[in-house]
Design a protein around this nucleic acid. Sequence first.
DNA 1: GATAATTATTAAGAGAACCTTAAGTTTGGA
DNA 2: TCCAAACTTAAGGTTCTCTTAATAATTATC
Lengths: 231, 231
Amino acid sequence: MNEQIKILVVEDDDDINQLLCNIIRKNGYFPQPAFSGTEAMLYLESKEWDMVLLDLMLPGMSGDEILAKIADQSNIPVIIISAKLDQQTKIDMLRTGADDYITKPFDIEEVSARIESHLRRYQRINLSSKIEEQLKHKDIEVDPDAKIVSVQGKELIFTAREYEILVLLMSSPKKVFTKKNLFESVWNEAFYGDDNTINVHMSNIRSKLAAANPDEEYIETIWGMGYRLKS
Amino acid sequence: MNEQIKILVVEDDDDINQLLCNIIRKNGYFPQPAFSGTEAMLYLESKEWDMVLLDLMLPGMSGDEILAKIADQSNIPVIIISAKLDQQTKIDMLRTGADDYITKPFDIEEVSARIESHLRRYQRINLSSKIEEQLKHKDIEVDPDAKIVSVQGKELIFTAREYEILVLLMSSPKKVFTKKNLFESVWNEAFYGDDNTINVHMSNIRSKLAAANPDEEYIETIWGMGYRLKS
DNA sequence: GATAATTATTAAGAGAACCTTAAGTTTGGA
DNA sequence: TCCAAACTTAAGGTTCTCTTAATAATTATC
């Protein structure tokens, strides 16, 4: 899982950009400076971001154009940081899709607190809408939410251990998992060779899969090495 | 479905309260004035809210206490509207869980735009988790406004914890919730395995449901994994 | 083809996970 | 401050899963 929280800082003034990046770094997140509107767009298109700090007066492409694009195409929170003091701009930006509007010169602690605040709210969205992908291999399907294994649409009853082993195998269909690998991933403790446990689980998993579809072989034994999915 | 967006306006000054309510009404939402901290708490406990506008200087119970409670117990966005100008208060409130901090005297259009902005972001949470529609399962019905659980139309007495657990299960009827899941969602703190608490709550929930309808089984234990609604 | 090493299967006892009841402990309201 | 409701902890019993161990089957090596 990728735990790094990445924040794009779009600000053409070198000093201010650096200052903002430092605030972000100090909070434990990962800043990426961009010094023009066009540069910002490149970053936005090439990566996933958790937040954007955006100046309005930018070379290349103006801040409000960028804001409009972000608001249109994504869900990323945007904090405008601008020297423009007039209310109308502020209101327009907030209505266009900005999450906040901070005027320069800014208070470092306040910027820090506002970043935290918006990130906190945004995190919850991502947690609740996090769409987990389904694992599939041949006619095996796994629904990680429901923790259900099905073969040819038929739902199978797997125990917790069996489920975890199968998911591990399916997470890297080409990899050969040694018993040590399997044991340490699934059991989360050290493996002191010579253990029949995994053999037994493999046998049980195979027989459950075979009961659902006898014509297919799903798990391959690599002699002297371990197991992997048969492709 | 309940489409009304309800905003609680906590402000002891009559004129300002009314002004804020007017802004909200003009935006198409439903304001509820509260003129003291204690009054606000009553509203917060009795209904579901989409947003809270909160003054800090209040009779009865101070704004920061209210904020702390809301942040601790729920997900509702809070905008502080205060005459306190000092940065430290602002920063503290934002760190405690406020989503925004607007100083008086405020610009009507800006307040309006900021309400829209936060609501826009918050709505996405609700849209993605769409709790409202799914709060029925078999003959269990939950009224999230009144926080009432009923089975076959009969109203049951659930405690706060029991209610939250049940709502969580019902929010994703097919999902298997691990104890970790449950604990971290309902208690909002880290889970250090081997805890009987959830077992006991589950047992209590089951017996209350069974008392209302002995012929039906509602909650399924998935051994080694967790719990889910029985479909 | 015989032997040794590894893997597969089976069944039963050990162990882990869970349920329930009841006794503390905490919390919130009068 | 006290009381009652809610929550947590604890203990004993139950159920289901995992591991162990014995045995069979397979693969590699000589």
